[in-house]
């Protein structure tokens, strides 16, 4: 059962920001992740600041320059079903449609999907792990079949989001508001590795909220998202491949390949991208790119399969171009 907390319903963004600064205050958008963490006592939740009624943060709009603005409170279902998204960013529609379950997609928001806490069973369970201020990343010696093969040290979580790898591949920019003002950055730069900061997965400061995600125009961009999981619904990616390419005739002019499920952040496989640019898609080009993507992988005892899986999934994604 949920522990006790105070509840604040913000009616304006400013009210939300005013209330989020204090210790133990957490933002509630769709609520699916924060309530889960509160119930499992992953961290202390003293105050829930609900922003769910801030209509200004909701919605998908296209600008005259072709870019797309997705408000942070837009639900995952709304993204998956948006004709604008389906038409220009099919990979994003696919990624959103692959999130969790229909009910959670109806409730969960884009901001929440990007900022959700990791699903590592040690972090979510009653283990005082390094990420929670303990001494040990239990995954190193423990049950680590779902953990990171890239960028892990000293904490081997994988980033749980489906939309994040796809949005990074699409070159999205994230907008953040805090009491001190607003800022924005490429989404790729938003996420932080555990060796930079063990306690968090992104640059959101206490008291800040994500307000929107901006996608550049997708003219000429092909995108796809391929998620491999153990069961067909309500499961996080063992590995996922977000791919965005721009073709120039029959050659690949631009490519972004981002992996989910393999690292504590959406993992941009730049070596793979380099192996693709200027090439014509072919099985051997695809195989080279796939090998390059996982070249630096350092599997733990139980997750070496992820190296094979990432290669296989990349291969499939590229061959489907």
């Amino acid at each position: 059962m949920l522990p006790n907390f105070a509840y604040i319903r913000a009616r304006t963004k400013q009210e939300a920001l005013n209330n989020l600064g204090s210790e133990g205050a957490h933002v509630h958008a769709g609520g699916t992740d924060i309530l889960g963490c509160a119930r499992a006592e992953v961290f202390e939740v003293e105050k829930i600041v609900s922003i769910s009624r801030l209509e200004e943060l909701r919605g998908i709009t296209r600008s005259s320059d072709g870019s797309l603005r997705i408000g942070a409170l837009t639900t995952i279902s709304e993204i998956a079903q948006s004709p604008l998204v389906q038409e220009s960013y099919p990979g994003l529609a696919q990624a959103a449609g692959d999130v969790a379950s229909p009910q959670l997609r109806n409730q969960g928001t884009l901001g929440g999907n990007l900022c959700q806490r990791p699903r590592c069973w040690y972090f979510r369970g009653d283990f005082h792990c390094a990420k929670k201020g303990g001494d040990l990343c239990y995954a190193v010696e423990g049950e680590n079949r779902y953990h990171a093969i890239l960028g892990g040290d000293p904490c081997y979580i994988v980033h749980p989001s489906d939309t994040a790898p796809m949005l990074v591949a699409l070159g999205a920019e994230i907008h953040i508001s805090g009491a001190a003002g607003s800022r924005s950055m490429p989404l790729q730069d938003f996420f932080v590795l555990p060796d930079q900061d063990l306690s968090r997965e992104n640059l959101l400061e206490p008291g800040e909220i994500v307000t929107e995600v901006l996608l550049p125009g997708a003219s000429g961009i092909k995108s796809s998202y391929r998620k491999i999981r153990e069961r067909g619904a309500w499961d996080f990616a063992l590995v996922s491949v977000a791919l965005a390419v721009r073709m120039n005739g029959s050659t690949i002019a631009e490519a972004r390949l981002v992996l989910g499920g393999v690292a504590p952040v959406p993992w941009r496989a730049e070596a793979a991208e380099r192996a693709l640019i200027g090439k014509q898609p072919s099985p051997s080009v695809a195989a080279d790119a796939a090998a390059a993507a996982v070249a630096g992988a350092q599997p733990l005892e139980q997750n070496a399969y992820k190296v094979l899986l990432a290669k296989g999934a990349i291969l499939e994604s590229l061959l489907a171009l």
């Binding site: 069973w121 040690y122 009653d126 283990f127 239990y138 423990g142 049950e143 153990e230 309500w234």
Partner: peptide
């Protein structure tokens, strides 16, 4: 069922997200 055999012996997948049973998709 997954127990943290080498460390604490505690069960790590004591919920329906980590202990996976078939959904309609499976």
């Amino acid at each position: 069922r997954v127990l943290d055999e080498k460390q604490t012996g505690k069960m790590v997948n004591r919920n329906w997200h980590d202990y996976k049973i078939p959904t309609a998709m499976d």
